[in-house]
Nucleic acid binder design. Structure first.
Lengths: 227, 227
DNA sequence: GTCTATAGAACGATAGAC
DNA sequence: GTCTATCGTTCTATAGAC
């Protein structure tokens, strides 16, 4: 027990003392995010990351253990941030609406906005991180299942419960299917926004329509839930 | 001219004579498709491909020129097959409906089915091929634009024109946005069907709901186009 | 057309000095 | 915590025999 306390104390002092170390870790994380999103996981070498971050090659392994664990740290960082904001909004909504159903649009907005806004903050295509091609992660069949359970179970439960309250005519299965397609829609919108410019023959420019893009996505999903 | 004729003749005899060669090319294509889809482009080595195809490493370069060109050949093969079927259906529909608008559901079914059925034929997740991480392809900014213009321009034009006829209240931009999100939906549904099992906590099993999966996707899109 | 053998480059990881 | 140097591996691509 005393050992534990002393160890904690040292850990604390240690952390206080090495904000510069923290900066390096953060810098690697930021550069890796940009490069992974741009080129994908496998096409991004640790030499690229550390080169662009102006730190030595060895520091990825020192701070994260491996290239793969760096990726996982990165993905989880974003999942946490997005879902924490959702939880915050969800709780406020339930409080505000007491026992009444929350309007569909409000539910969808609360779910989509924390995601697509976070994505605009980090202008890189974050989905390069989620559509991962790493062998080891793919060969661990429970990786995504574990990730899902850790970060998204409660979000899903809230969403399904609230949609059920708001749209009692939809069966449970209906809601599952539509939530699934809606997520696909969100992911793909963020991962490949350029396609809209191709489809519209450059009549719509993403850069000039950022707000509209989000609003159209929300409207698309509102419709999709409404028979 | 005579040269050309002779050359064509030789080419013909050559092809007749080397069905085994054709088999090898096809075999490489099939194995590559499976592995690219499973592990992604960068994580699949030519050694893996040629090993599993029981041919020598050098044959990929002989038949396709490079690993990258093999991928492009593969992607284009599928694009062609899917879109040829769409064109066939589209033409028949326009003929059948004379000058009348085609019902929304019929338009969407004609667009979605050739895609999602093709995907079930090749059980591999074909989207591993489309969400490509290759440096060279990504660094060629016009690669996807060229691909799009070559394979999807006419499909898009037909779709936009018909939707406009059927749903005259939608603006041109509205149609572009929704077609864009719909494609995202289709791609993501095929790329990550497992997510539905996670969402539903295994209450819905993909293997047992293949037809329903497609029908729910179509319904989702019908709704999405209907305000 | 198909093979073996290998060149040449890039990668992830780690040991060891500071 | 950060660095340099390097090990061992694996990759794509190609040369050359058959």
């Amino acid at each position: 027990m005393v050992d534990k306390a002393i160890s904690n104390l040292f850990e604390h002092l240690f952390k206080m003392d090495t904000l510069s170390g923290h900066d390096t870790k953060e810098k690697i994380l930021n550069v890796a995010e940009e490069l992974f999103a741009q080129h994908g996981f496998d096409s991004t070498s640790m030499r690229e990351i550390t080169g662009k971050a102006h730190v030595s090659l060895a520091l990825v392994n020192y701070h994260f253990g491996s290239k793969e664990k760096l990726l996982i740290a990165l993905v989880e960082k974003h999942f946490s941030a997005i879902n924490e904001e959702r939880r915050r909004i969800y709780e406020a909504l339930r409080r505000d609406f007491e026992d009444k159903p929350i309007p569909l649009e409000t539910i969808l907005r609360a779910t989509i906005k924390p995601f697509s806004e976070k994505m605009h903050q980090t202008p890189q295509k974050i989905m390069g991180l989620v559509q991962i091609n790493s062998h080891q992660i793919k060969n661990n069949p429970s990786f995504w299942a574990d990730m899902w359970r850790k970060h998204f179970s409660d979000i899903t439960e809230w969403f399904v419960r609230e949609i059920h309250l708001t749209l009692p005519n939809l069966s449970e299965d209906d809601i599952y299917f539509r939530f699934h397609f809606m997520i696909g829609c969100m992911l793909s919108s963020i991962a490949n926004p350029d396609r809209l410019e191709l489809i519209s023959k450059d009549k719509i420019r993403i850069a000039e329509s950022e707000d509209r893009y989000q609003e159209e996505l929300i409207r698309f999903c509102i419709n999709a839930f409404t028979d």
